[in-house]
Amino acid sequence: MTASTASTASAASTALTEDPPRARGRRGRAGRAALTTLTWVVAVLFVFPLVWMVLTSFKQEADAYTDPPRLFFTPTLDQFARVLDRGFLPYLGNSAFVTVLSTLFVLLLGVPAAYALSLAPVRGTSNALGFFLSTKMLPIVAAIIPLYVIAQNVQLLDNVWALVVLYTAMNLPLAIWMMRSFFLEVPKEVIEAGQMDGARLPTLLLRVVLPVVAPGIAATALICVIFSWTEFFYAVNLTSARAGSVPVFLVGFITSEGLYWAQLSAAALLASLPVVIVGWIAQNYLVRGLSMGAVK
């Protein structure tokens, strides 16, 4: 690594280290134990519906309904097989395509925009931020009919690209606001040192700024992935058999022949699995915080 990165690192730590607060007593241990206990209680309550869903997905439909609910049963993979039989995979493919591309576009458009808005002081910054925000204010219910007409006119009905464009627009405002708040944490000295080294804008962004805010970018990307993956309203109105996404599949499933809880649980489990995997991967970047990213 070059010398500039080393100076960057020290600048980063000095600029962000504030005066530590004066402290009086220390009764940390008991409090910490109580906190840990509370944490686990809340976590269990939180996870309970999920555990229930997972259990149900391995049941036969008959076992899913018993009263009182049955904890012990012979697990089966029948429900998963049924979900796959109903043509789950094409929908999964559509969702993956739309999610990956829209997230990529959000980052491509959003990183420069957020960086531009973090270059203080630039006049009109708050106006631009306000504009981005305002695009999240119209209820989707109102937007759907005009969007349907547009999609029809440009022949993008039941086409994955319509969702790619819409999800990009849907996620951009939040991504810009978020990434800007992370860019603001980058000490000015880091950027100035980079500029002094003669780095041009793309290099500066990629080599100097992004490594410092990597956790922020990872979180942003993860949020975009989840929003795109679970979006329902656009998908159900603008796509059907050809370009339908996973939520469309799930809902089609529910209405066609009543509620089959075990099958629905299996489908929901399969539908959320990719996000868990992506979350797991993103996690590695999430922990690589400023301390590590800048020193390495």
Partner: peptide, 18 residues
């Protein structure tokens, strides 16, 4: 971490039913 994210990763249509 992973389990905390799951509720959000399930499409609303499904978690509503759940």
């Amino acid at each position: 971490r992973a389990s905390i994210l799951v509720p959000w990763a399930i499409p609303t249509a499904v978690s509503g039913l759940l």
